[in-house]
Every structure is written in structure tokens, then in C-alpha cells.
Design a protein around this nucleic acid. Structure first.
Length: 154
DNA sequence: GCCAACGTTGGC
DNA sequence: GCCAACGTTGGC
């Protein structure tokens, strides 16, 4: 049984175009420093799970692409990189604190913006639309995934 | 374990 | 830039 996820990225850091331009249209999902989001990647994601690529903190926040989980979990290399803003001095090599997965973009879509998501019948319960939600990775229910894919194809 | 202070996220 | 909401830290 496949699971589905919405993953936020700031386009000024890694946009959907950046991801597509990468080898095999695949990027390592570096920089997650929230335990709940990490746990989703480390414990619940599996190869080929569906991913909604979401642009946050930008002019037009929303879903901009569809992809898949393209690796099993492994340690985020930026936690050991002193020059990275994601460097974590408290994380040890033999006991890495932060894990990530690779995400492969399969298709860039039109921008399905927040206002459209909010007004779409059937998506009211999506976690990303809840007031105060800040989680950068959230599970997506299959029925929500199907609705969104349909909206993107329309 | 409580909780105030602080830092971050992210839409607007 | 503002600020609501939330997570983390650290004193007690």
C-alpha cells in the first residue's frame, strides 16, 4: 500500500525547477530539523510513495509538482558540514540525528495555489491547510491525493 | 515536570 | 515587515 506526502521546499533554496535540473530529477531532502518531519522520512516513507512538491515562503505558495520517494532513509550529510547552515554540532557520525530521503520529481505541474486548495470541496481536512500548521512534511490521504491529481489534470 | 522565554515557520 | 502559531530550551 503506497503512502502519499506533501513536502515543502522554499523555491529560493530548492525549487521544482532546480529538482528537475538535477541528475535523474532527484534531490536529497536536506535541512529538515524538525523531529516530526524527520520521523515521517525515517519511519514511514517507502520507495515509490507519492510526493506533492510544495513551494513555501514565496510569492505564490502551492503545489508545483508530483514526484516520488526515491530512496530509503539515510543520514542528512549537511548535519556534519560545518559550513552548512544545517550543521548540527550535537549530531554524531555514529549516531546521526537527522535522516532524509531522496525525492524524484516526475512531473512539474501548474501552481495549485493555497486559495484554490482551500476552496476545493473535499480538501478541507488536509493538514497543510489547517490553521497554524508549520510542518514541512505532512501525510496526504489517498482521497486527497486523487482529488489533487484530478485538479492538476483538469 | 512545568512553563516562560525565545526562535522559527510561513502566509499575508 | 508583521504576527499567529508552534517547537525548543533551560531555569527551577
Amino acid at each position: 500500500m503506497k503512502n502519499y506526502w506533501l513536502m515543502k521546499s522554499e523555491p529560493s533554496e530548492v525549487s521544482v525547477d532546480d529538482a528537475i535540473a538535477a541528475p535523474r530529477s532527484t534531490v536529497a531532502w536536506t535541512g529538515v530539523r524538525n523531529y516530526q518531519a524527520r520521523n515521517f522520512m525515517r519511519d514511514q516513507m517507502r520507495m515509490d510513495d507519492g510526493v506533492l512538491f510544495y513551494h513555501s515562503s514565496c510569492a505564490e505558495p502551492g503545489i508545483v509538482g508530483i514526484g516520488r520517494v526515491a530512496s530509503t532513509p539515510y543520514p542528512d550529510p549537511t548535519q556534519f558540514d560545518r559550513k552548512s547552515k544545517y550543521y548540527d554540532a550535537a549530531s554524531k557520525k555514529d549516531e546521526p540525528r537527522w535522516q532524509l530521503v531522496d525525492v524524484q520529481v516526475l512531473k512539474k505541474t501548474r501552481t495549485l495555489g493555497l486559495p484554490e486548495l482551500r476552496s476545493a470541496p473535499g480538501l478541507e481536512e488536509m493538514i497543510v491547510l489547517r490553521k497554524g500548521n508549520r510542518l514541512s512534511i505532512t501525510p496526504v490521504e489517498a482521497k486527497h491525493w486523487r482529488l489533487i491529481v484530478r485538479m492538476l489534470e483538469a
